[in-house]
Amino acid sequence: MDKLLTLTLGGLTSGAVYAALGLSLVIIFRATRVVNFAQPALALISAYVAFSVNKATGGYWLGFAAALLTGALLGALTERLIMRRLADRGHLAPVIVTLGLLMVLQAVAGMIWSAEPRSFPYAFDFRGTFSPAAGFAVAVVLVVAAGVLVLFKATPLGLRMRAAAFRPDVAGLLGVRVGLMLTIGWTLAAAVGALAGLLAVPPFIYPTALDSVFVHALAAAVIGGLDNPVGTIAGGFALGVGLSFVSGYVGPELVTMAALAILVAVLVVRPHGLFGHAVARRV
């Protein structure tokens, strides 16, 4: 029983991270129909900024804030400088460009902070079966997810963002500044991604620290439905717990295989994820 409990709670903690990074993917996907492969690198750079601020000032929360700001800024810059030029270029070009950005940013991280792993603190004490640090991770992810949901469903800004995403032409005619909405979407998503990074990197940060987290986050988003924030959050937690069980009861080498199996099982039954919606056929 002790083992079951430990594995469940451990899985929930990693699941919170998958959910948060998955949420950042969903926000961008809803806005632009792009899967942002550069997301782990944006989060990585943000976390490294937190690392440097921590080192310089000795405080955790200043670094935390700096990371969120960095994430937001990087997101806005990515949209303005790069992604905007790719409008109407199909679904492949954004994949490749964000992959290129991933390489560049990981290389930059290696250049500035070296490939060696560095110690990166948790927000709170990490000891205990369900530690304050784990509790913080789960809580903050749930709060942010709720916030994003309220923003989308219940605020004028959210309404404008949805309009800009689904019918940019009509939204433009109605006076919505479509370009600005896209920038806001990327900024918000990258800030959420930075938060995911801050929760994911402890205890060690190194340039490839978020790669496997990203694969699991993408899996979570695909399982939940890429256009559905609630589904993605649920997918993230479910995947975290599921993989923790596989690792604990079957073997750690099977974790990636299990992720594949879960993904295939879900997609065979529901090709657009558990909670996703099929996009109407383009005519």
Binding site: T6, G251, V255
Partner: peptide
């Protein structure tokens, strides 16, 4: 308990 270098979550192994 074996660990896989690609998987940094060793909680299951340490628990065992």
């Amino acid at each position: 308990q074996p660990y896989d270098p690609a998987n940094t979550d060793v909680l299951p192994q340490i628990t065992a």
